[in-house]
Structures are given as C-alpha cells and as structure tokens.
Nucleic acid binder design. Structure first.
Lengths: 206, 206
DNA sequence: CCATACATACCAACTGGTTGGTATGTATGT
DNA sequence: ACATACATACCAACCAGTTGGTATGTATGG
C-alpha cells in the first residue's frame, strides 16, 4: 500500500473543515469527497455511514487538538494558577483568522446531533470534557496552594471555561467578527484572577 | 377572516421547537408542516423559501422571549446590581425540563447558518445582541452607583453573559443533562458579584 | 340588497434535483 | 492468489419548491 490510508485522513480533515463551515447536517457525503479529492467508494470503504464519520471526526478532533494543547507552552509555568491563566491566554491567542479556523468542531456538531445521534453526542462530550479534564488538576492545585475556600469545584470551573469558549464562538458567528469572542475570554481570565485574589475566599498561607 | 394567519403562527411555533430539537438544516419543510398540521401549500404561501422562514423564526423568537423577559420580576429591584443579579437568577431558574425546552433557537441556528445564510445570521445576531442590550443599562448604572473603575464595558459584560448561557446550552446538550449548565450560570453570577465587590476595582462612595 | 370582481388562505399532487448508500469493477502491493 | 484501497455506475428515498386548484373572504358598483 503506497499511500495507504491517505483517503481516510483526507476525509477526516475535510470533515473538520466542513463541519465548522456549514455544520454536520448541511455537510453532504459528496461535499466531503470533493473536498478530500476522493470518490464515494473511498468514503464508504472507510465509514459505514455518515453518522460513523461523525463519530470518527469527533475523535480525530480530539487527537488533533489534544496534540496542540499538549505541546503548548503554558504547561511550563511553575505556579499552577499561572498554568491556568496561561491556558486562557493561549486560547485567547488562538482567536485569529476566519471563523472556521478558530471555532470548535464538536461544539458545533453536538448542537445538531445531540437528539438524533447519541453516538456522535457522546463522542463530542468525550472531546469537550476530556479537554476540560486537562485543566482540572492545575485548578485544584492552585486552589490548594492558595488556600482557597470555595463553594465550587475545580471540575466545574474547568467546564465553565469551556462554556465561555463555546459561547464566545457563537457570538463570533452571529456578529461575523472575532472581537466579541476575545472580550468574552478576557472576562473569563478576569474571573479566574478574581476568584484567586478576592479576600473573602482566599486564606493567605504564611 | 375567522382563523386567518393560524397556519403562519403554527408554522413559526413548530419552527421554534424543531430548530431546538434537530437544528435548522436537519429540519425539513415537511417536518414543519406535519408539526404545524398544515400542508406545503400553506408553508409556501407564507414563506418564499425555507431560508425566509429561518429569518421569520428568529424574529418570532425575539418577540416571544422579549415578552417573557419584559414581564420578569427582576426589573422591580431598586438597586441596579440587584436587577443584574436578578436577571442571572431568572436565567438559572429557566434551566429546567428537557433540553429543547430551555435552549436557544437563535444560538443553535446561527451556528449552522452564519456562513451560508447571511440574512438568518443577521436576524440571530439581532436577537442575541438585542437581548443583551436590555442588560447594558442596568450594568452601566450599577458601575456608576458603585464607583467602579473598570477596564471593561457594560456592553461587553452583557455580551459575555450571553456567551456563558449559549456555552452552557452546548455543554448541557453534550452531557445530555442540565446540571452542568446550571453550574456555569452560577459561575457567571459569582463573577458579577466579584466584579462589584473586589476592593481593587471598587471605590467606596461615602 | 346583491351581483360582480378580485384577494386571501389554504390544499393535494407533482417535479426535478439531491441525498445517503450499494453493487461491482480494477489496480496495486504482498 | 488474494486482500486492501480505491473508482465507477447506479438506485431508492427524500428534499425544497411548483402547479393548479378550491373555499372563503371583502371591496365596489348599481
């Protein structure tokens, strides 16, 4: 097999673009094949159905973004709060270019599929909350280190950060402009800073 | 005309449900007619195309939700910050029942249409930011009253609140459970409280 | 008061193009 | 020789939109 599996990965990459451009439902199998430069025979050789491609696209997205965030520099900070704030700054810096370039495949896809395709929904949930999980430890460590007494959990703040990002993408799509998304991420950063510096919740360690 | 316009309003109401259940693209004209109990002839009598129904559905959604929020009790509070926090609590209380009952028509629709149907996108933007606009004055008044020195605007905080809500809907759809959305709205409430009580930003008025 | 003229509100059947999916071919590497 | 990796050709169902029609208004003139 000379260039084996080329078609499958080209189809998956095409899916990541097309889902962000027009959504899962409006994306046709012909669209996918044209974008990938293959024929329908190739598509159905690798995927039993369009639904199955949806699941594979969510998993592919997890792999691609997982690698991106894994090698991001914010992990190098010594202070856990700096790592959390570094993550938010990293997300803010990603908000550039055209809308399909910075928006989220699984966030878009789950909106259309949650009621009709449980397998796609679960794959999207795994992607979103799996990514949120990479934040939880840093948040928890920051809470411990700063002696934070909180009525919220590290897990819920990690999930909230994903909510802000997903919502920011929606506002950007509605306004057809990235600025409103950037401002929302800056509110998220300010929130985290306030959480960890407000005297009512922080007990100074000596 | 005894029951004139009945078909049109039934079609618009059907659209609000169907868009939240399966999205705009996956919703067919036949779906709409079946749900509304009318025929395709009636549909195309009132709407030139499915796109045009999308625009009308966004406007209908603005009217329906506009009336809901206009008569909500949080406006009665004397203190502007209490009105803002009352709004957030009102939104939190709406997070009940099945997912299509509390999620947002225009937030869902704009994700699928922003690139292909500019008119629908603009109608969705008008709905989202029009609603955000009803918050801006209360936020601005609260800032003035508390002598808040901020590097953010009332408008951006109003928009951010919509981002949090839209993102919370996405997380709820992914998890197929409302709890995660509620927690995110509680983070939003906490953020607003911190913004207006943190000593670094508030100059006490005597 | 009423007949003519026309508009509005809707329906049932149909159409051409699109859709996801299949059946069958063929080239290539092992 | 045989499995893998595709391409070609095709189908049945479905899709948005059209057509031709009916039933019920409502405005106007005599």
């Amino acid at each position: 097999m000379p260039k084996a599996r080329a078609a499958k990965e080209k189809l998956l990459d095409a899916a990541l673009s097309l889902i962000r451009e027009k959504g899962f439902s409006a994306m046709t199998v012909d669209d996918l094949c044209a974008r990938a430069g293959v024929t329908k025979g190739a598509f159905f050789h690798y995927f039993k159905s369009k639904d199955e491609l949806g699941v594979a696209a969510a998993e592919h997205w997890s792999a691609v973004t997982g690698a991106l965030f894994e090698r991001a520099p914010y992990h190098d900070a010594e202070d856990p709060l700096d790592r959390v704030l570094g993550y938010i700054e990293f997300r803010r810096a990603l908000l550039r270019g055209d809308i399909p370039e910075f928006t989220c495949v699984v966030g878009t896809m789950v909106q259309e599929t949650y009621g009709q395709y449980p397998q796609i929904r679960d794959a999207c949930a795994a992607s979103i909350f799996g990514h949120a999980g990479t934040l939880t430890d840093d948040i928890a460590e920051a809470m411990t280190k700063r002696g934070l007494v909180a009525d919220w959990t590290a897990e819920s703040l990690a999930a909230h950060s994903q909510a802000v990002l997903q919502g920011a993408f929606i506002l950007a799509k509605a306004k057809n402009e990235v600025g409103v998304a950037i401002e929302s991420v800056e509110h998220l950063r300010r929130y985290v800073e306030l959480l960890f510096t407000h005297p009512s919740t922080v007990e100074k360690k000596q």
